[in-house]
Design a protein around this nucleic acid. Structure first.
Lengths: 243, 243
DNA sequence: AAGTGGTCTAGACCACGGC
DNA sequence: CCGTGGTCTAGACCACTTG
């Protein structure tokens, strides 16, 4: 296996192993090669192999038993989200076995309300960008996402923003900001008239409401988002490793 | 009879640093000592310090900036749950600033329905234990939790189970099983009559419904649980580090 | 007893940011 | 430039499970 320089060796090992799990070379429930064998086979140190295995274990792909071996988790296919991407609707839709697509509804500029200013550390009335998008699983609308970003972070004209991009890439490309961490508030709500127009179904039913705040490396909020999420159409199912 | 296993050095370092963050010795937003300084100060290798710092970073307590330093996250107080304990109601209630208590409602033995048998890998009609509990934040009921465990795993009389214990400890003490990983399904639902009796509030409102499956190291399900969760009384707010 | 994963060390070099 | 965190190595010993 050829090692390139761009990504870290540990991440490449991680990807190699994950691919072998996904391709069924390492079968669900079966024992994987030992750390020493992987170390020899891939030509890297055991510590590097362990870094990769630790990431796979944290995401629930493998189980490690001291004195025994490392086993492929049999239940990974029942999972649609992992710890690192609870907020990632595109991966969530793919994890449910559907084809994702994004329809930008509007990109507007307007002054912040009190609530928005508080969440973003702005003054009331400071200008912000409101990006409103609809996420589809195959042809079914499953999520309505509103994102609010301070206008002061943007260096380019508002019109140049491609509303189809991943929020991570929007930050990278147009705002030159990296996301350091995310705080998500998970709530339940009765479906509103607008969401009901998009999602359909019964009118009094309940849906999930995710409040997401994105923070940069400087500890300051980059953006705030509200996602309405039709949990009857899309399962939000995540795996957590114990310890 | 029980040997006290000393925790790993890395975990001890983790606890020391977390305590200093909680006690305000390392202030929110401020820069922590460098890895080398911590390594010297604590008398451990830099690799061990890094293991501890990695755990703190994964749980969102600190931010690490290459070429600069390690900073304490300013927003940890806004968070009620961390990635490792989304399912832990006791910690969740404490994270919201309330005092948790548990009221066992019933511990029964009965045959599994088709749905329960499927979730637990049993045959329909196999006996299981149904543990039903109510969780309080201060004096307010906030969660109704139903847990289903195969009777075959239990070596002791049903009556000996202490319904006030943490589910982790129940497994450890009465079933001699360790939890390896957990799959959680997060859904939204209109409050049912029974939950409404406990939680109060409007009758048509929505609450969160968490379906939790606990798995052991052997990759087989240990237990299945349904948690009804009053998200108007308790915030489910979690932090995720970005990679 | 042999082999596995778990922990820890000491040292090296790199990439990046601030001064 | 220097100090920071990021990566990787080689080796050692321990704790545990299995045959």
């Amino acid at each position: 296996m050829r090692i390139l320089q761009s990504k870290s060796i540990a991440n490449q090992v991680d990807e190699i192993l994950l691919e072998k799990i996904r391709d069924g070379i390492y079968l669900p429930g079966s024992r994987m090669p030992s750390e020493s064998e992987l170390s020899d086979e891939l030509g890297v140190s055991r510590a590097t192999v362990r870094t990769a295995l630790a990431k796979l274990a944290a995401n629930g792909f493998i189980l490690r038993k001291q004195g025994d071996g490392t086993y492929v988790n049999m239940h990974i296919h029942e999972v649609s989200a992992h710890l690192g991407n609870l907020w990632d609707l595109v991966q969530l839709i793919e994890g449910n076995g559907h084809t994702p697509s994004i329809q930008p509804l509007s990109i507007e500029q307007r002054p912040a309300t009190e609530k928005e200013a508080l969440a973003l550390g702005l003054e009331v009335g400071d200008e912000l960008i409101n990006l409103r998008r609809l996420f589809f699983a195959d042809q079914q609308a499953v999520s309505l996402a509103d994102n609010f970003i301070p206008l002061s972070l943007l260096n380019e004209p508002l019109e140049s923003i491609d509303g189809q991009l991943h929020i991570r890439d929007i930050f990278h490309k147009y705002f030159h900001q990296e996301i350091a961490f995310i705080i998500t508030d998970i709530r339940s709500t009765v479906i509103g008239t607008e969401a009901h127009k998009f999602f359909g179904g019964e009118s009094g039913r309940s849906i999930l409401e995710l409040h997401i705040t994105f923070y940069g490396k400087n500890n300051l909020p980059l953006a705030f988002g509200i996602n309405y999420f039709d949990d009857s159409a899309l399962r939000l199912s995540l795996v957590q490793a114990w310890n």
